[in-house]
Every structure is written in structure tokens, then in C-alpha cells.
Design a protein around this nucleic acid. Structure first.
Lengths: 337, 337
DNA sequence: TTGTATGCGTTATCAA
DNA sequence: TTGATAACGCATACAA
């Protein structure tokens, strides 16, 4: 068996409760005994048993991560490892552990989350997505269980802490950028239309066109659910058009990569025939050919701040709901002219 | 407070221990009381408190995941989300939860793992990498703590359960395939040389050349640590050569993608000037242009089986160490002729 | 087949 | 400033 708090107590000639207080750095313990006890702890390599500590204090020091449901191969989007890296960093800094939800269908995920709260497995959750009518989010809200959304909640914005980019503005500025370069026929290629981020970016797209008095052409708006086939499919549709677009706003680097492939096969030159700007600025954006001009939404920071907000909220449940906006930045490469 | 085992016991007119046994589906409880108790459990939505259950039974029902250290942007390799998906699936099937290690440097990761075992946070680990002289692996072995390696251990092969492909054979067959297509100048572009998988694939490469009586040219062997720059750098080096290779065996789709980009920029035609076959067969392999012929190592299964082995080992520690080999398959696309 | 009593390793309350 | 002692919620050895 491992060494327990009692072992330390005996050797230090104090009560177990005293040792417990030393661990928690309780102010009412004299420096002298603190030192003595700590020396013993160090010497014996004592580590408090997690389950016991957790049972006694009714807290878990762990963060639950909820992934989107993984029909399609969305997880292969480098977005996820990158945001996990951000969360992992802050978790490590604050001595929190990370538990990830299992389950692939929405129903399985909801069950998984419910079990985790009822069994008290985590102190709070980070949702790595934001979509319409999300059951997980509704459930957590009804239970008043701490959680943070990465992205913008589709409702109750002021009642849910979230970390997001200003996607409306990001899309708008990108289209402005196209316009300034002389483009007039600008298409929008978006991912899953039930995701809030897609909606936001489309809004920015429309806003920019409106301001510039460019008529909206519905056939230039394409929404693809599949990351895998999405890009190629979208490229096909767009190229069938009589009056082809000269610029493409694409909401995901991976979709843009698919489009690039289709264009290469059909001898459409990027950026000579069409310019492309995509979102996320993930590693493959710079590896693609031509390298993709992409909006860097700072995925790592999204994760880091989400973790930070959640931990704050856990420690102080009275804390008002917050909204953290991570700045974006257009990274110019070769796919746009 | 939530509903506890005592609440159920009172309402069912039995002792708490009986309820506990019903939950564990203990054989010595009559069907009648089982039914009655279960009905109440269902009705009240009772879920056992995790910490208490864990403390009482000295087991956690959770799997720890150890990632490689993340200098460079290795995590952006879709390999990781995909293998996590496999582990997540089996974990969900077997009612296990997943805790992932935090920490970015090797030292931090080792500390994190040590804490997790001492504090009894998990029942076992899956290591998502295999490299030379790994401290984590050494530590777990010394503690006789259950763990499974994805890949081939660099030593003590028979004493460590691992799930792997036959990478020597996979590389050999791939080179054989090149040779059959008439290639003689075949280059090997590998990732991190401290990783066992790189070593294995190189061995297969050498073996095939030897069998075919093709002299080994050291300058055709390139090893790149960085996924990011690796591909482009390797392409540059190879194209400087007087006697250029006509075929490339590349150990990672992402590196191959980088090479593709460099070739496109320098007007090297794939597959007309060089053929490429890479490993992993991750989503971007089929999205690239030209689509990459790639060795599918079935990453999902790698994860699924690793989880399965670990859980078996946890349930029966006496179980002998196993070696599970997941078959590979060459997926032919456009990058090779 | 079921109940009683005790232990698991902490935290926290109340005294001293 | 510290020490007893009672939770915390469940598992299990032993009794019945």
C-alpha cells in the first residue's frame, strides 16, 4: 500500500487533520509544524489519494471535455488537437486533470455527460462546439453546472460563458479585403449549417456585400456538411456556374484543401482564376499548394482561455457569465490575389 | 444532495449492502429483490458516486492516455484524433472513462504520469508513441502498473503488451511494389529517428533493396524531425542530387504533403517524375493533389485494440503480455506509377 | 439470501 | 494552534 496521511501524522507527531491542513496550506498552522510535516511528505513521497480527497472535499479538480458527435471524420480536423493543447496547458498550470467524453452519437454523448455530472466525475465542462438546440448545453444549464462553450451559444448568450472570435467581423473584413482587391463575384463556402460559427461567418459575408452594394447571388452560397467530400463537391458546383466567382471565402482550411485538389485536377489556377481565403490557419494551410491565405483564429488561445474561464467559474460560482473574444488575424500567403 | 445508496435501501426495505450487490449484479441476490431495487434505481435516477465507489473498491474505471511530448506541432497530425476515436469507442463500450496526461515537455509528462499512479487516478495507461529509452515506460514497468504501448517497444518486447503494425514488412512490401513497377532509385524519407516506427520502416526498406540486389545509397535516406518543414526540406535535398530518385517511401502522410508542395513549386511532376507512397492513410492523403497512395495502418483499430488489451490486463493482471498486430493495406491512388 | 459492521483516505466541524 | 471525531458514499468480510 501507499503511504497515507496517517503515516505522515504519526511520524510528525501530529494529528492527521493537521497534516491535511498543511497540505491545504491552511493559515492557522504554525510555520514550524508546516516545515516539519512538509519535510516528511517530501521524504516519503506522499501524494494524497485522489478519490479520498475528492470524496471528502466534494470536488474533483478535473475538467470534462465534450467533443461534437463524430459522424463524418470531423476529428481529423487539426482544430481539435490544437485546442486540446491549449486546454491541456492551462489545466497543467492550474493542476487540473482532463477527462474526455466518450460516445459518438449525440445521444450517447448526452448520456455520457449526464453520468459524469451525476456521479460527480468533473467540476465543469468545456464544449468544443456550438450548434443549434444543443442538448448538452441545455442540460448543463438546467443543472446550473459550470461550463464554457468554445464558440458562440445559439441562445442565452448572456447566460453562458463563452470564448469565441468575432466571426461576423472576421468574415466581413475578409470579404472587404477581396473587394478591395477588385473582386465582385465572391462565393461563400461553409461547413455544417447547424453550427453557429457557420451562421456567423455567413452573416459577415452578407454584411460586407451589402455595404459594398454588391448584389447577393444565392447560388454563390454553398454549405457542405462533409469535410471529406465537401471541398471537392463545392468546387464542382461552383465551376458549373455560368458566371463563375473569382473569389472564395471558405470557412475551414480542410474544405479549402479539398477545393484546391479539385481545381488542380480541372486546371483551374489558384489564385489566377480564383482567389481563396479560408479559416483556422491550421498547419496544413501553410503546407498546401498554393499555400492558403487563411484567417488565424488562434485556436490554441481559444482553448487556453476556455480552460481559464472554466476554472475561475468553478472556484467562484457566483462569478457573472463572461464573453471572451480572441482576436483574429489574416495571414497572407499565396492563394489570394 | 444527490440520491445515495441509503435512500434506495430505505425505500426498498433492504440494507445498503444489498443495494450495492444489486449494482454489482452479485449472484447471491434473489431475482425478486434485484428487480425491486433496480426499479427504484431507475425511478430515482440513482447513479453511484464515483469517488466513493472508487475509494471502496480501489479501482477507477478510467484509462490514462499518454501523448508524446509536443515540441513541434506533432499533435496536428490527424493520427492522434483518429487513434483517440478508437480508444474512445472501446472505452465507451466497456464503461471506462478517459483521462489524458497534461504536460508538454518529457519531464512534465513523466511527473504527470507518476502523480496519476500514486494518487490512483487511473487503472492503466496507453502510450500513444514508442521511442528509445522512454522514461514513462520504464517507470510503469518498475511499478508493475498496467500499460499498453501503441507501436513496438524499443526493448523488453516480450514483457510489454503492445499493439502495432508489422512496419518492417509494410515498408518492405511497399519497396517491393516500387521495384516491381520498375523503380531502382528509391529514397526513404522518415520522421523522427528516435521513434521505433521510423527505425522499423527503414529496416524494411533496406531489406527490400538487399533482396533485390539494389545497392543502398546513403544519400537517399533522409530523416526529418519536423512535420512542418520536414517534407519541403526533404524534397529540396533530394532534388539537389545528381542521380535523383524516381520513387519515395515516406513514413507520414503529412511529410508527403509537404513534399508535394515543394515539388509543385519546382515543377517536379508526381507521379511522372517521382512516385510517392506514404504511411497512415489519413484523411488528407485522399484530399491531396495528386491523391496520395498510402499504406493504411488502420489507426482506429490500433486505438481500439490497445484499449481492449489494457482493459483485459486491468481485469486480469496475471494475463501474459501480448502482441497484437494490426494488418496494413496499400491503398492505391494517384501518386505512384 | 440478506444484514451488520467496518474500512477506504481524506476533509471539516467542533472542542480544547 | 492543534486534536478528536464525525462525515463523505460505497464495498466487503463476516454473521445471521
Amino acid at each position: 500500500m501507499g503511504v497515507t496521511i496517517n503515516d505522515i501524522a504519526k511520524l510528525a507527531n501530529v494529528a492527521p487533520s493537521t497534516v491535511s491542513r498543511v497540505i491545504a496550506d491552511h493559515p492557522s498552522i504554525s510555520q514550524k509544524t508546516k516545515d516539519r510535516v512538509r519535510a516528511l511528505i517530501e521524504e516519503l513521497g506522499y501524494q494524497p489519494n485522489y478519490q479520498a480527497q475528492s470524496l471528502g472535499s466534494n470536488t474533483t479538480n478535473t475538467i470534462g471535455i465534450v467533443m461534437p458527435d463524430s459522424t463524418d471524420r470531423v476529428f481529423q480536423n487539426p482544430f481539435f488537437p490544437e485546442i486540446m493543447r491549449g486546454i491541456s496547458n492551462i489545466a497543467h498550470d492550474k493542476s487540473y486533470e482532463i477527462l474526455i467524453s466518450t460516445g459518438t452519437t449525440e445521444q450517447e454523448i448526452v448520456e455520457s455527460v449526464k453520468r459524469m455530472v451525476q456521479r460527480k466525475r468533473v467540476d465543469g465542462f468545456i464544449l468544443l462546439y456550438s450548434k443549434m438546440d444543443d442538448q448538452v448545453s441545455d442540460y448543463l444549464r438546467s443543472k446550473k453546472f459550470p461550463f464554457v462553450i468554445v464558440g458562440k451559444p445559439d441562445k442565452n448568450i448572456d447566460a453562458i460563458t463563452h470564448v469565441d472570435n468575432d466571426n461576423v467581423q472576421a468574415a466581413k473584413e475578409t470579404v472587404d479585403y477581396f473587394i478591395k482587391k477588385g473582386h465582385r463575384q465572391i462565393a461563400f463556402v461553409g461547413g455544417d449549417p447547424t453550427q453557429v460559427v457557420t451562421v456567423d461567418r455567413m452573416e459577415g459575408y452578407k454584411l460586407a456585400l451589402q455595404e459594398a452594394n454588391i448584389p447577393l447571388r444565392e447560388e454563390l452560397i454553398i454549405r457542405e456538411k462533409s469535410l471529406r467530400e465537401g471541398g471537392r463537391e463545392a468546387a464542382r458546383e461552383l465551376m458549373k456556374l455560368d458566371n463563375k466567382p473569382t473569389a472564395l471565402l471558405v470557412t475551414d482550411d480542410l474544405i479549402a484543401l479539398g477545393m484546391l485538389t479539385n481545381f488542380a485536377q480541372n486546371n483551374v489556377k489558384v489564385p489566377d482564376d480564383v482567389s481563396i481565403i479560408s479559416f483556422n490557419n491550421v498547419l496544413i494551410a501553410e503546407m498546401a499548394h498554393p499555400a492558403l491565405t487563411s484567417v488565424d483564429i488562434q485556436v490554441f488561445k481559444l482553448g487556453y482561455y476556455a480552460g481559464d474561464c472554466l476554472i475561475e467559474k468553478i472556484k467562484n460560482p457566483e462569478e457573472p457569465h463572461k464573453r471572451v473574444i480572441v482576436p483574429f488575424k489574416l495571414v497572407e500567403r499565396e492563394s489570394c490575389k
